[in-house]
Design a protein around this nucleic acid. Sequence first.
DNA 1: CTAACGTTTGTCCATCCGGTCAAAAAATCG
DNA 2: CGATTTTTTGACCGGATGGACAAACGTTAG
Lengths: 211, 211
Amino acid sequence: MTTMAKARPRTRIQTQKRGIILEAALDVFSTHGFRGATIDQIAEAASMSKPNLLYYFRRKEDIHTALIQRLLDTWLQPLRELDEIGDPLTELRGYIRRKLEMARDYPRESRLFANEILQGAPRIMELLETDLKSLVDEKAAVIRAWMKAGRIAKTDPYHLIFSIWATTQHYADFDVQVRAVLGPDRGGEGRFEDAARFLEQLYVEGLRPKG
Amino acid sequence: MTTMAKARPRTRIQTQKRGIILEAALDVFSTHGFRGATIDQIAEAASMSKPNLLYYFRRKEDIHTALIQRLLDTWLQPLRELDEIGDPLTELRGYIRRKLEMARDYPRESRLFANEILQGAPRIMELLETDLKSLVDEKAAVIRAWMKAGRIAKTDPYHLIFSIWATTQHYADFDVQVRAVLGPDRGGEGRFEDAARFLEQLYVEGLRPKG
DNA sequence: CTAACGTTTGTCCATCCGGTCAAAAAATCG
DNA sequence: CGATTTTTTGACCGGATGGACAAACGTTAG
C-alpha cells in the first residue's frame, strides 16, 4: 500500500495530517485544476504552513497523484457492481442511480477527474489503458450477452456506457451551468431526483427489447 | 462589434494577426485551462514574441474573453435551429446530430467551454444566466408543447436537453478517455458514426410516445 | 532526564509569469 | 522621398510560486 523507500511504518500523526491535506487538496484541485492550484492555497485550506505540508508530501504532484489513485478505485465501484446474473434493465437502472448518487455526493472527485481528462490525462493515461479499459471491456461483454439473448435492445455497449458516464457526471461537472439554467434548486424533491427520473425513463424505454 | 475606445478602424494586419492569436490561444486554453495557459505558450504557438502579442491583446484575459464570446454564439446555434414546426423526433434527431458534429469538428471549442464551466464559469456566468437560460427556456417550452400534444413521451424537457449536451460533448471533452477504452479509431466508418447511431436509437426509442 | 526521532516554522531562493517601456523597424501616406 | 503611424523587439520589473533548509520545538522511550 505505501510507497516509501524503506517501508517506514506510518505514524498516527502522519495518517491524520495526510488525510487533512488530501481533503483540502481535493477542494483546491477540483476547482482550479492541477496547474491552477497552488501549494499555498492547499496549505491554507488545510490550516498548516506550506513547509509543513511539504513535509508530508514532497511535491505538489505527489498530492495530486495520491488523490487520483484513491479516486479511481471508488469511482469505478458502481460499474464493478453491474451483475451479469441480475435482470438487465434493473441492473442498468441501478448502475445509473449509483453513478448519479456519486455525482451528487462526490462532485469534487468528479471534477478532479474531469479536469485531468480534459487536459489530456497526462498523469493517469496508463491507468485508463489498463484498469479502466479492462473493466469496461468486461462489462461491455456482459451487456452484449444480454443483447444477444434478446433481453435488452441491441446497440453498442461501449457507447451505452459512455452515455451513462456522460449524463450522470454532467450533474457534477457542469453543475454551475445546470444551476444557471434551472435557477437555485427548486423546491420539492430536488434536482437530482428529477434527473434520476428522467434518465431512468430514457434508458428503460430506450433499451426495452423490441417485440 | 468592436469595443475600442475611439472606434479606430481595424487594420488589415490587425485583423490577420488577431485571428492567428485567437487560433493559437484556442489550442492552448483548451488544453490547459485559463490559469494553466501562459502568454508565452500562446505567443510561441502564434509564432510571435510576447510583447508583440500583447500589442494586439493587452491582457491575457482579453484573449480568453474574445474567444469565449465568439464561441458561445456558434455553440448554441444547433439548439436555435430546433424548429417547433417540424416533426418532433426528426427535429431532436437532427439536433443530436448537429451537436455531435460540432463535438467532432470543434473539439477545442468544446473543451474550452468545459474548462470554463468546470472552474465555476467565473468569466461567463452572466452569459449563462441570460443568453443561455432564455434560449433553453424557450426550447424547453417547445419540447413541452410536443409532449403535451402526445407527439413524444412525457418527461422533463430540461433534463432532456442536458442529457443531449452531456452525451454529445462527451466525445470532445473526454476524447482521451474514449480513445483509451476503444483503442485507436477502429476501421470502418469511425467512432462518431457509431456514437451517432447509438444516440439516435437511444433517444428515438426512449422518447417514442407510448401507446 | 536525556537522547533520538518526529514535527513545525521562518527564511530564503530560483524560476516563472503577466505585463511595461522605450526604442528600432516596417508600413503607409502625402 | 520624407513624415507619420503602425508593428516588432529586447530588456526589464514586481509579484507569485514551487521547493529547499536548518534551526527550533514536541514527543516518546529508555
